[in-house]
Design a protein around this nucleic acid. Structure first.
Lengths: 340, 340
DNA sequence: GCCTACGATGGGAACGGTCCCATAAGTAGA
DNA sequence: TCTACTTATGGGACCGTTCCCATCGTAGGC
């Protein structure tokens, strides 16, 4: 019945309404307000108010070459850790007047490629991602075009970009020291398959080194976490094996902790008697049984740091800086699951 | 050292490289590929490949008036329920070749206004939101401008838009029937302050009606969930009160369930003996004590439905359709927390 | 064999901003 | 009083697309 009453007002209409030039209106809305006389300012403000004017970001992004958008490629949006980091990224963006465009790749490499192309097509001014697949070529092209890139956690050998993430070696040392101090002597490290994801690789490696250095017995079990039965079997075998020392599970991330807790639950194991320590703090860790000991990551800070890197790189103009790694320290939250 | 090798290629450069006109290249990239002769198609494809061309969405959004972006305003990005819905929205968008721009309002009404203006300035082709504050005026303006709007859960009386969400009345009936069948006779309903959020209001009202209809004893406690001590006190009082019938807590959403579980945990209450039923299913509900009984919402479906409404409304051109409400049914997942 | 129609292609004017440059008026210095 | 410089404002080209409107063959109908 009713058609849209009026379209969006343009800068020209505001200019006419205010009796000013479009240049002045443009200035008013792009942070050069103080260059205008007070009179002009008020009449522009009034005109814009009357017409319900909102600057068209598509247009300004086009001419100015600045979209004011930061892109973020998240491997798994349903992982609370990712969401927490994203929250930090978002806040940092907001403080700088940037918008965030988030794409979820669902750990799918094809989807990742697709979404990367999408973000590129919006000419994002920076990209934060935790890489899934092997997009080295595309990413390198992006970097060479001058788009700042920050990798969360997972690094890609081929691409020149900053990496922001946990100090995995120290984190694993912390975990192993704690388990050893609590008297656990046989450890099972549980992780998703490391594949190309470098933090998984880094943690795994350090686990193996650390176990050897401390003269502990350490095993590793990697699998896709969806397959419940095979996980139950693996953990069951580990627990059933004759051994003199107390046993503990060490989980490489939040998903692994969830899967391990479920498995222990269904096997009827008692937390504490069987040790459990997870990397990533989750809402519910304090609530399950005697509580689950975790290594908390400073998620918010990681997100903010990512944006800071982006901005620094943008301001120094592209590739002038060497790629760096920004490390954050995990903090141990001891609970009953590592207390016999 | 090295400056960006080359900027983004434009349609004109591709055209030159392919020996075609920019119109043809434009057609190639905007779904009119079949209008071009096979020869031209291959040479354009080759040229674009060589130059690493990606269409500039800013420019096409400008001229065509279609940004191909759907905006989403989420009240609390750290709520797993919101994330799950968002995942559904995202998938539905992707299937239709739309991008999603998500803004988190952190339950802050000022931030919500700000982000709404932002999304408007990108000329989003549709908006999905769960409203926090009272943006009725702004939203009404948006709708009149022809932007399709879908509200998640919370409805706004003043604005003509579809609402997608849970059938709250049925959900509460389901919960109350279950609690009654399990023998709980004194109930405490726990919620964040309803304020303007209509689903909170709807659930609360139905709780009160339902309790009366079933001749149960029902109390309501509303508070901001961050304040732990006052929550503990309220729940402690409820449990300490002399009474003949078993007592149970009914939590209005996932956040309330988390807060209640923490409170019960710190009060040393035994789940089951004290009943606990939460709306929203969470990863960890099966793991805490004997498991927490929940009402699961079909999150994915809700998200997809929101996008469907958006598209339907867009295709019928603005306001031609009356505002509707799309209801989804919750499903009960019985666990030990409602078993004495 | 001419006219029409249609399919394939290209030229060029928007779209709504930004930003370079020009202009005009005032102000200070000599 | 004249020049030099600053400040407040406006004109207009341009950003990379889309899309309307040619243009140009060529095939079919008469």
């Amino acid at each position: 019945m009713t058609t849209p009453t009026h379209q969006h007002a343009t800068i020209l209409e505001v200019a006419r309404e205010a009796g000013a030039s479009k240049t002045s209106v443009s200035r008013y809305f792009s942070g050069e307000r103080e260059r205008l006389s007070p009179n002009l300012q008020t009449s522009i403000a009034a005109a814009a108010q009357r017409l319900g004017y909102h600057p068209n970001r598509m247009a300004s992004g086009l001419k100015g070459g600045r979209s004011r958008i930061i892109g973020m490629l998240v491997a798994d949006i349903r992982n609370p850790f990712s969401v927490a980091v994203m929250h930090g990224v978002e806040q940092a963006c907001r403080e700088r007047g940037l918008s965030l465009m988030v794409c979820n790749t669902d750990n799918d490499s094809a989807l990742e490629r697709e979404h990367l192309a999408l973000l590129t097509s919006y000419r994002v001014e920076g990209l934060v991602m935790n890489a899934v697949g092997s997009l080295d070529r595309e990413l390198q092209a992006l970097v060479e075009q001058g788009t700042p890139l920050v990798l969360l956690e997972r690094e890609l050998s081929q691409v020149e970009a900053e990496v922001v993430g946990l100090d995995n070696a120290r984190a694993l040392d912390l975990a192993l020291d704690h388990l050893q101090a609590r008297g656990y002597g046989e450890l099972l490290y549980l992780s998703e398959p490391p594949g190309l994801a470098s933090p998984r690789q880094a943690r795994l490696t350090r686990f193996q080194q650390g176990v050897a250095a401390r003269a502990l017995a350490g095993e590793v079990h990697c699998q896709t976490l969806g397959e419940t039965e095979s996980l139950n079997r693996a953990i069951g075998n580990f627990l059933a094996r004759p051994g003199t020392l107390p046993k503990a599970l060490l989980c490489a991330n939040g998903n692994a902790t969830l899967a391990a807790t479920r498995a222990l639950h269904s096997l009827g194991a008692r937390l504490g008697e069987t040790g459990l320590l997870g990397i990533d703090e989750l809402d519910w860790c304090e609530l399950v049984g005697p509580g689950i000991t975790t290594l908390a990551q400073p998620t918010e800070a990681i997100g903010r740091a990512a944006v800071e890197c982006l901005m620094r790189r943008r301001d120094t103009g592209g590739r002038t800086m060497p790629a760096r790694r920004v490390h954050f320290q995990a903090s141990l939250i001891p609970r009953g699951s590592t207390c016999r």
